[in-house]
Simulated scan of single mutants.
Amino acid sequence: MSDRRPWVLRMTWHDLCFMHWPVPPEHLAPTLPRGLELDTRNGLAWLGVVPFTMTGVSPRGVPDVPGVSTFPELNLRTYVTAGGIGGVWFYSLDAASPLAVRLARALFHLPYFDARMWASHEQGVTRYASLRTHRGAPPGRFAGAYRPVGEPITALPGSLEDWLTNRLYLYSADPAGRVYRGRIHHQAWPLRRAEAVIRENTLTDPLNVTLAGEPHLLHAETLDVRADWVERVR
């Protein structure tokens, strides 16, 4: 994939929480399209639930649009490789922006879904709820609260924290099963440990996967991001 093409989309992510659970790889490998391989660590795959809020979402050279450029987003993800390049595979991305949902589905082949969402941030605690409303999509609900704790940490190369978060490519697939890859650009994650209370989470129900035990939690307060077009993986 060429890195010479300029980025096409900008955004800022706020109050993001990585909630990760280890999963036997045989539960996820059959869910991937042809051409992608599950990325594992110490024999385990990982599923991530990631709630956050987006601001400043806009194409390159276009100013923010009130009521359009800011919205909550929630994704369910795992990690994959193709041609030796690791990246993120999204099972779902719920967003409270009908326009963003349709553009992302059409232009980036990402499984975005309409949702009614609510997020608040007060005294360091983010409270978050999402109800998927997309016509024809499987149900999906999430509700919880989280906050960062402790001092900033550095995700050292080779650490689990680095493996889970240092992913500069995303993968997607169109209805015909053709796989695409896109690059994102940002500085190092401003990570801290986190605490969370998850009151409801049905995002993994379509995968027939039960998330057992306490998740591995990381928090990032603010991160500026740029995204490239996706290109087909040959």
Score class of each variant (00 low, 15 high):
V8S: 00
R127T: 08
A155Q: 13
T40E: 02
P98Y: 03
T53K: 03
A188S: 10
F142I: 02
D162G: 12
R199V: 08
W189D: 03
G35A: 02
I198R: 07
T40C: 07
L168H: 10
Y128Q: 08
V125Y: 06
V197D: 11
P30W: 11
T31A: 07
F18W: 14
G86S: 12
M117V: 02
R41P: 08
E73F: 14
H14S: 08
S120V: 15
R5V: 05
E26N: 09
R167D: 02
R102H: 04
W13T: 12
T70G: 12
R4I: 09
N75G: 04
R141F: 14
S97R: 14
W189G: 13
D39I: 02
G83N: 04
G124Q: 13
E231V: 01
T154R: 13
W229Q: 01
P175M: 12
L36V: 12
V68F: 12
S2F: 14
P98C: 03
D162H: 15
V8T: 05
A227Y: 00
Y91F: 10
A129K: 12
F71R: 14
N75S: 06
W118R: 14
G177K: 11
T31S: 09
H219Q: 14
R167C: 03
P157W: 13
P24R: 10
F71G: 05
G84P: 11
A137K: 05
R5N: 11
P22K: 00
L191I: 04
R167F: 12
S69G: 01
G56L: 00
Y180P: 00
H14Q: 10
L191N: 05
M117P: 00
Q123H: 13
R10A: 00
P98V: 09
L203T: 06
R141T: 09
L168V: 03
N201E: 12
H185G: 12
T81L: 02
T40I: 00
